[in-house]
């Protein structure tokens, strides 16, 4: 069978589908001071996943927490990578208490594209990955 670390090189999704892959990628991102990109990506997935069985109040609190931690500060690594229109949309959802399971989808896509084009290829060339393999 193909060793997991070779699968990690197939696509970002293959990497993020494996706990050890996530751990190594996060260690790399931490070195580059952009681990928030990955945390935000998982927070968006988790938000969408939890919607069905969580109460509205809890979802609002969670949406606010994600917004405050990653989007509100315009100098944050995540906020800098998200388009202004996408940020306004999320801010409006939070302010108007309009909580939708898909409200972070566009922002997640933008961060994912950025990782696919930038940090993920760098990771595959990094010492941390090459040493692991």
């Amino acid at each position: 069978p193909t060793p997991p670390y070779l699968k990690w090189a197939e696509s970002l999704h293959s990497l993020l589908d494996d706990q050890d892959g996530i751990h190594l990628f996060r260690t790399f991102l931490k070195q580059e001071e952009c681990a928030d990109l990955l945390d935000f990506w998982f927070a968006c997935s988790g938000f969408r996943k939890q919607e069905a069985n969580e109460g509205n109040e809890k979802m609002l609190k969670l949406a606010k927490a994600i917004y405050k931690k990653y989007i509100l500060d315009n100098n944050g690594i995540v906020s800098r990578q998200i388009k202004p229109a996408t940020k306004s949309f999320i801010r409006d959802c939070v302010m108007k208490l309009h909580i939708d399971p898909a409200m972070f989808d566009q922002a997640q896509t933008e961060i994912q594209t950025m990782m696919e084009e930038n940090t993920y290829p760098l990771f595959l060339k990094s010492d941390i990955y090459l040493e692991y393999t």
Binding site: L16, D17, D18, Q19, I22, D39, F42, A43, C44, S45, G46, F47, K49, Q50, K58, K61, L62, K64, A65, I66, K68, K69
Partner: peptide, 21 residues
């Protein structure tokens, strides 16, 4: 009641794949 940070950590963890071992 969970703090916002606790909620966030739980949310991130819930989206990660579980160990297959």
């Amino acid at each position: 009641m969970d703090s916002e940070d606790d909620l966030l950590i739980k949310c991130i963890t819930s989206a990660m794949p579980q160990h297959k071992k």
